[in-house]
Simulated assay, not measured.
Amino acid sequence: MRAFVTGISGFVGGHLAEHLLASGDQVAGVSASGRFPDDLAELARSVRIERLDLMDVDQAELADLLRRKQPEAIYHLAAQSNPRASFDDPRGTWALNLGGTLNLLSAVKEAGLAPKPRVVIVGSGVCYGDPPPEFIPVTESCPLRPNNPYSASKAAADLLGVQMHLSDGLDVVMARPFNHAGPRQSPRYVLATLAHQVAEVEAGLKDAVEVGNLDVVRDYTDVRDVVRAYRLLAQGGKAGEIYNLGTGRGLKLTDALDRFLALATKPIAVRIDPARVRAVDLPYLVADPSKLRAAVGWEPVFPIDQTLADMLADARRRVAGG
């Protein structure tokens, strides 16, 4: 399968490129930087990556690029993906998450590829906000109640995908992944920052792990399972449909920290940092992934203990390397 990935140099993009290559696909992609980070430099041997900013793109140029690549599957990952950062730059978040999706889908329409490529739009489970009790675990029929610019813009991009499927006949499916984590994730995200801080304390660079509100419960899927689901949706999802992606099991963040501390090579002190407590936080968010499983037969493979151990091992390598 010929695959084209937006945001290919990011955390999920790198894992997706690795999975696609391992599955025998031809892979090309774009990102705002136009290059892989140093720890993914080997991917540049097998993946053609080009610099392209979806917020400031010439639609005809992007359509021409798609004609040259002739993708059979397009994975749209490019996004401002941090909910907290979206409060600092709501306009930029909307410009990329909704405007960038409009630019991509418009270019797909203009390119007029035959057969039509399957476009997998990656949304987010946080678009459901704080679900009513009757919608827990969260199904796709749960009302949308986004409480930050990130989740609102992702919900709007999903609706755009549905609209352009119905009005323009584009072959689009929407994935709504809930929280995911794994090696190489940025410390801007809670499990990654816990792993990174434990590694720093082990190395003598900090005296304690600083935390915010750890009483929340989230549905964490290993990123390596997430990218498998994306490829399965590219092959077997139904056009115009939305699919929740998660394990269906909740993880309390205090329990995640306890598991990291159990893996540590020395006793680790923990202290509350008020700056890390979010003004808007959802107490409980767990997916019902039964629609996805019925459609493509996906099941998660990586248990959470392996995910956390792999994240801590990765954090130790990064801390040791400066």
Rank of each mutant, 00 (worst) to 15 (best):
G7C: 06
Q185Y: 05
A264C: 00
H76L: 03
A156G: 01
V296E: 11
S186K: 09
F87V: 03
V138K: 01
D258G: 07
A63S: 15
P300H: 12
A175K: 02
D219G: 09
P149M: 00
T254V: 04
L261R: 06
R218G: 08
D215I: 00
S151E: 03
A229P: 08
N103R: 04
M174K: 01
K109V: 06
S151H: 04
R188L: 12
S23M: 11
V12K: 09
L194G: 02
R51Q: 15
A295V: 08
S106D: 14
D39I: 04
S31G: 10
G29E: 10
I268V: 14
W94C: 01
G250H: 08
M174R: 03
V227Q: 07
G250A: 08
K238I: 14
Y75T: 10
F36L: 03
A85E: 06
A155P: 00
M311Y: 14
G13Q: 07
S46E: 14
P131G: 06
R45D: 12
W298H: 15
V301M: 07
L40R: 15
S86H: 02
P267R: 02
A95V: 00
L232S: 10
S153T: 02
I304N: 05
L263F: 04
P131W: 04
Y243A: 00
L102M: 12
Q70S: 12
D255A: 12
D207S: 15
V217N: 07
P274Y: 14
K109D: 14
L194S: 07
I272F: 11
G182V: 13
L159Y: 11
F260T: 00
G112K: 07
N97K: 01
C142H: 00
A95D: 12
S106Q: 14
V223E: 05
K69L: 12
V122G: 03
R188S: 13
G112H: 06
V198R: 09
G169R: 03
N244E: 00
A320F: 08
A181C: 13
T101C: 11
G10W: 03
V209K: 08
R278H: 06
E210T: 13
R318S: 13
N179T: 15
